[in-house]
């Protein structure tokens, strides 16, 4: 029912708010992006910017007091916000899978790996237990776990962090989903393992046509992996575009600051340039540009709310005074 041209995922004006006692936390506020088939979107931003909540909104796991208050989440043309809980459950782990940040916490400590994998197969496929077990074993092999047959009998605590994350990825891949949301899946792992997992995931998404949302606050991970990048700040996407172009010539002052704080981009011996100030509280955010208090380019105009505008072909940003001058200015 969806043509080849229609993207796997299209999020339009998504707003997810938490109705706490202290007030309304606008964790995701008017977020839009698309992820085409087989492509990787890197969703980056500081801690608390709303990346995870965006992911949970898509897969329908925002818990009270949070709620998707408006917007559309079109998955292969179907609006997920209108589906019943049972219809959503049928998609979860099946057509849409999610991988979490901390591999030490995502597997149930008291259940064996085979239990946790087989139940996932059986939740969506009418197959025998033996067939389900076979699929679980194949999936473990696919993510590079040695002697998968034996490892099926193990408990999570018998695996290292990297191995556990591979298991979680294997579980996510069980039904060859059309969309994977990976919420900082490699942050807790060391650099070599991170590299291996990145390479495997990239290969998978290219060969199976799976669309991928890769959430991270590490720009260097996104650089080698993503096709598109969306930068989040205080619940909003402030800049979006092809990854090479955005990293090469960021338009939004916040993106400029983020790039400046990546270690590898700094000359040796120079101190890291952190963005001054702190992420504002999402509770009762003042009107105007949310980055204003920390922005070196802020002026009177920024007391108003900047709209998302296309500033260059295929490049959008939410800023009144973007870095449109020379590319040289940002490279320094």
């Amino acid at each position: 029912m969806s043509g080849a041209a229609s993207p796997t995922l299209e999020v339009r004006n998504l707003r997810t708010h938490f109705f706490t006692r202290a007030g309304v936390v606008k964790a995701v506020d008017d977020v839009s992006f698309t992820v085409p088939r087989g492509k990787v979107l890197g969703l980056v931003g500081e801690s608390g910017s709303g990346k995870s909540v965006t992911g949970f909104s898509i897969i329908g796991l925002v818990d009270p007091p949070g709620r998707v208050v408006s917007g559309e989440i079109l998955f292969q043309g179907r609006d997920l916000t209108r589906l019943s809980e049972e219809e959503m459950r049928d998609l979860r782990g099946n057509r849409i899978a999610m991988i979490f940040q901390d591999p030490m916490m995502t597997l149930n400590p008291v259940l064996r790996i085979d239990t946790q994998m087989i139940e996932t197969v059986l939740a969506h496929a009418r197959v025998s237990r033996e067939e389900a077990r076979q699929r679980a074993r194949d999936a473990l092999g696919m993510v590079g776990i040695p002697s998968p047959e034996e490892r099926l009998h193990a408990y999570p605590h018998q695996f290292s962090g990297g191995m556990r994350q591979r298991v979680a990825i294997a579980i996510a891949l069980l039904h060859r989903p059309d969309l994977i949301i990976a919420d900082e899946p490699t942050t807790a792992l060391d650099v070599t393992i991170q590299g291996q997992i990145l390479a495997e995931v990239q290969k998978l998404s290219a060969t199976t046509g799976t669309a991928l949302i890769w959430i991270t606050h590490d720009l260097s991970v996104v650089a080698g992996l993503a096709d598109e990048i969306a930068v989040m700040y205080a619940g909003r996407i402030v800049e979006r575009g092809p990854v090479a172009e955005v990293l090469d010539r960021p338009l939004h002052p916040y993106t400029v600051g983020l790039i400046g704080s990546v270690p590898s981009r700094n000359r040796r011996g120079e101190p890291l340039r952190q963005i001054p100030g702190m992420t504002p509280s999402l509770l009762n955010l003042p009107p105007g540009c949310a980055f204003r208090a920390r922005c070196p380019r802020a002026d009177e105009a920024c007391r108003a709310e900047p709209p998302m505008r296309e500033l260059l072909p295929g490049r959008e940003a939410r800023c009144f005074r973007p870095h449109l001058e020379a590319a040289a200015e940002t490279a320094a």
Partner: peptide
Amino acid sequence: QDYVKFARAKGLRPARVVGVHVFKNILI
């Protein structure tokens, strides 16, 4: 716990999430 959210993200039925993933842990 993350593992309960992950169990839900796998598309398990609520009865299984509560009856197996939650229950086995509180039994301890």
